[in-house]
Design a protein around this nucleic acid. Structure first.
Length: 917
DNA sequence: AATCCGACAAGTA
DNA sequence: TACTTGTCGGATT
């Protein structure tokens, strides 16, 4: 269950009459327990409670219902019950149907309220539903409740007004919802005069069962779009006269209001009765945006970006700098004044703004700094100098774009209340500015210069024909002549195969004149291109959250030389960390943050997030595209090995639908005699064979033995299946292979031995898994292979040095290693080896193999488990590293940073490459 | 959660 | 342009 569903269930429970015996089970059901779990608790099998009327779910909660007036003492009894501790209950809860008391035993927090109000605290209990990771959700109970109810209203309205569900009318629907949300907020914050509550007016005027809710709302909207001195002429109804003139585009445009059924009307009133002063515009926005998205609705209330993560972008981008200037200014009035006028000219631009949370948080943080300035200058009531119009965004989807604008308006009001007081906030709030700073459109197609024009020039600059399709300039000028521009955001990530044709075209367009071959780039790279090109016209800094794949492997040589070639520098970066947004089926993406600028400071800031979530900061001269300190080199893949190494090739790809591969227990079923087995079946090694010691066989038919093999029925039928499978492929290359269905795509075989390394392996192991096989073995495309290798190669691949290199230049989604011959092996910097070096390394390699053998039949997975690596094997590796590292620098390296620096230095020198930029 | 495996893009001839 | 090879990341278990 998602938080919104839980909220609905809990609210439903509080509205029902209190049933003393049933309540504990109803409560647990509301938090997503399955019926079988409840049944077992009810029967007493798993109910560990020692209290009368008590229900104790192990590792979760101890609940007791009680006689009226005894909730307090029952809670004490629950706390004192030995069973509570013995069964590791996280919560205790006592209620008599009037009073509701609970305690979080982990944190000691308590809840005590009227029974009817306990749904207000449902966030307190979310750990019961397994939702513990995200602190913010607990702190935003209001936002979830509001989202839940608005969702119900939205869905009901679409049912009542099916024609509004069409794409053309969705805009009207979304605009209507934004207006409603504004009204709810306005009536609770006294933006609407106390005498004219919105909800109350709708309720009163549409009472009596007449179906006129839509007309009432429509008339109220009309009033809010009509200036006071024009209202008589417009014939605004008397009961709507008391509403203020709001407009600011919010109440203009299409004025349609959907039909309201009785149910929809009651939902509306229900929503209006929430306390909307509690809204968090940053969190609420990202939650509510799922309402208008049919695909995302299942993840309602789960999709949002946490504030700490947003600050990872905004702080190093510019907020830290503002704060340090504030500190430096102290109480110096002139310095404070300068800082204030600087802040007033800063513009923040999020070209993938969603519901505006980056903009809202940037705004709130800047207001906080400004408020401190005003406090120190003795002007606490001063009107803000930060114009909302300096916060601009682009958003593709209509509803979030609508919400983003609303969220900024609400944030401005809340900041005014917080820093200046309710009265001052109200005095200047209405009417809203009519300017629209959120553009709804495709950020990779729009000309950013028109949405965020260059500063300080006073001249309108057209997009450069080379890079951009010229568009009309925005009519709204920024109030920031000479000010700074910061671009930020969390644009969408999409790997090549996830992109639609239109998105591929977007990328090509965004990179026009910069990169020709954009086929391998992630969609998010387009935002870097647009920002970098934008920076050619006006000095700026930008920082985006992005999938870590743009800073790893094959995308690096495509993307980064182009960006760095435009005179930009990486001013700060966050190395890979996990970004949980709880949306998209609980996917956890691994992301990086890269900040670039035209005018970099001397020291660059590199952040490393460790498992505990705290960020380690390293100051360094330069940060390169791999987000490694002091390394600007970009490693391009090589088809042929450099540094005199033997080539490494991809294993044989079956493209067989499973029919050319024979499991051990299938061999007998083939009905082959011993000679045929010898001739046609070869042991096959893929990644699980290397790592886990699995045994499989390949049907391996050289052209010479084709006819003989086809005469065997079992083989013949398998080959026919391969042919069918290949023919039905959507890929031309695969279909072509149907011509020779008896073979793998490649038919590479060793003459005397083959060294095999799996493509993918867990990051946990301290050494890369690599093994040696005799001439009978065939490697699959889940591995890379060196055919007929000299043994010392094993010593190199199994070294710490090599692992560190692979981790830096290869890598992929998640944080696991991904081996690559072109990127990782062919490029690996190796000093020229003497015969003595080779002999020493060969001995090391043999010692590693012997140490493994000593533990037969333990697999590589067993042997290299970092917790349980045998001592002799570890020693063999230590010795190997010792010997190899002496060849590089005459001693052991001190740490991985030193290893990488040396490797990149050798790479740079030996390839004759210059550091980029 | 780890491995499997085909599609697709880029490289090569 | 046709053929070859390596990488991506969803599907699968």
């Amino acid at each position: 269950m998602n938080p919104v569903e839980i909220e609905e269930a809990v609210t439903g429970l509080a509205e029902e009459p209190f049933d003393r015996a049933e309540f504990p089970f109803q409560f647990l059901t509301a938090f997503g327990n399955k019926k079988t779990t409840i049944d077992r608790l009810r029967k007493g099998n798993t109910n560990q409670s020692d209290l009368l009327g008590g229900v104790l779910q192990r590792s979760n909660i101890h609940i007791a219902t009680c006689d009226p007036g005894t909730a307090g003492q029952t809670l004490t009894a629950l706390r004192d019950s030995p069973k509570t501790g013995a069964n590791k209950a996280k919560f205790i809860l006592a209620t008599d149907g009037e009073e509701f008391q609970a305690e979080d035993l982990t944190s000691g927090e308590t809840v005590a309220c009227d029974f009817a109000d306990f749904p207000n605290h449902f966030g307190f209990f979310l750990p019961l539903a397994g939702i513990t990771t995200v602190q913010q959700i607990r702190e935003s109970s209001f936002d979830i409740r509001a989202t839940s109810r608005l969702n119900r209203l939205y869905v009901t309205l679409l049912q009542d007004n099916p024609e509004w569900a069409s794409p053309e009318r969705r805009t009207d629907m979304n605009h209507f919802m934004a207006r409603l949300i504004f009204c709810f907020f306005a009536e609770d914050t006294d933006i609407f005069p106390v005498t004219s509550g919105f909800t109350q007016t709708v309720e009163r005027m549409s009472a009596g069962g007449a179906d006129n809710t839509a007309q009432v709302i429509s008339e109220l909207f009309r009033a809010m779009n009509t200036k006071h001195d024009e209202r008589d002429a417009a014939g605004i109804a008397r009961w709507a006269i008391g509403f203020p003139y709001v407009n600011g585009n919010l109440f203009s445009g299409s004025t349609y209001v959907p039909r309201f059924s009785k149910i929809a009307r009651s939902y509306l009133i229900h929503i209006g009765n929430l306390d909307w002063t509690k809204i968090n515009p940053d969190i609420f926005g990202s939650m509510i945006q799922a309402v208008a998205d049919d695909e995302e609705r299942g993840a309602l209330g789960m999709h949002y970006t946490s504030v700490p993560n947003i600050l990872k972008v905004l702080n190093p981008l510019f907020l830290d700098d503002l704060r340090s200037h504030l500190e430096e200014a102290g109480d110096n009035a002139r310095k404070l004044l300068n800082l204030r006028s600087r802040i007033a000219k800063i513009r923040v631009f999020d070209p993938a703004c969603g519901s505006g949370n980056f903009l809202v948080i940037a705004y709130k943080e800047m207001r906080e700094i400004e408020a401190e300035i005003n406090r120190r200058r003795g002007e606490p009531d001063r009107k803000t100098d930060i114009p909302l119009t300096n916060f601009r965004g682009i958003e593709l989807r209509d509803f979030p774009a609508e919400i983003a604008r609303l969220a900024l308006i609400i944030a401005e009001f809340q900041c005014d209340v917080l820093y200046r007081g309710q009265k001052e906030a109200l005095a200047e709030f209405l009417p809203l500015d009519s300017e629209n700073w959120i553009t709804c459109g495709n950020a990779l197609r729009l000309d950013w210069l028109s949405i965020c024009p260059p500063t300080g020039t006073g001249v309108k600059v057209r997009g450069d024909d080379l890079f951009q399709t010229p568009l009309d300039q925005s009519e709204i000028d920024f109030e920031n002549a000479g000010g700074e521009t910061y671009i930020c955001g969390n644009p969408p990530y999409k790997g090549t195969k996830n992109q639609s044709q239109a998105e591929k075209d977007d990328l090509r367009t965004a990179f026009r004149g910069l990169v020709e071959r954009t086929g391998s780039l992630d969609y998010v790279a387009g935002w870097f291109a647009k920002a970098a090109i934008f920076a050619q016209k006006t000095p700026c800094s930008f920082a985006f959250v992005a999938t870590n794949s743009i800073c790893q492997g094959g995308q690096v040589p495509v993307l980064w030389p182009a960006l760095l070639g435009l005179g930009l520098e990486i001013s700060f970066g966050y190395q890979s960390f996990k970004w949980r947004n709880l949306a998209s089926h609980n996917a956890v993406v691994t992301v990086i943050i890269v900040g670039m600028t035209t005018t970099a400071a001397a020291k660059k800031r590199l952040f490393i997030v460790d498992d505990s979530g705290s960020d380690l900061e390293v100051l360094t001269e330069t940060i390169g595209p791999y987000l490694i300190p002091n390394t600007q080199v970009v490693v391009s893949g090589l088809t042929q090995p450099a540094f005199g190494k033997q080539p490494m090739a991809l294993g044989n790809a079956p493209y067989d639908g499973g029919h050319l591969i024979v499991e051990k227990d299938e061999i007998d079923g083939l009905g082959l005699d011993q000679a045929e087995r010898e001739k046609l079946l070869k042991p096959l090694v893929g990644s699980s064979e290397v790592i886990k010691g699995k045994h499989r066989f390949a049907i391996w038919i050289d052209d010479g033995s084709r006819d003989a093999a086809l005469s065997l029925p079992a083989i013949q039928s398998r080959i026919e299946k391969v042919r069918q499978m290949r023919l039905s492929s959507s890929d031309a290359g695969t279909r072509a292979m149907a011509e020779r269905p008896h073979q793998f795509r490649e038919m590479k075989a060793p003459r005397h031995s083959v060294m095999v390394i799996p493509i993918r392996s867990s990051e946990n192991r301290e050494y890369l898994p690599i093994d040696l096989f005799n001439e009978r073995w065939r490697a699959t495309n889940l591995t890379y292979a060196i055919y007929d290798p000299e043994t010392f190669n094993l010593a190199i691949i199994a070294s710490r040095l090599h692992l560190v290199w692979i981790g830096a230049v290869c890598g992929r989604m998640k944080t696991d290693f991904s081996y690559s011959n072109k990127m990782g092996w062919h490029t690996f910097p190796l000093p020229k080896l003497t015969e003595q070096n080779k002999a020493d390394l060969t001995r090391c390699a043999e010692n590693i193999l012997l140490a493994r053998e000593a533990h037969f039949p333990a697999t590589i997975a067993d042997l290299y488990d970092p917790e349980a690596m045998p001592e002799d094997l570890r020693r063999a590796h230590e010795e190997n590293d010792e010997v190899l590292e002496r060849i590089y620098i005459g001693r052991r390296f001190r740490n991985d940073t030193e290893r990488l620096e040396k490797l990149f230095e050798l790479y740079t020198k030996m390839t004759g490459k210059k550091a980029a930029a």
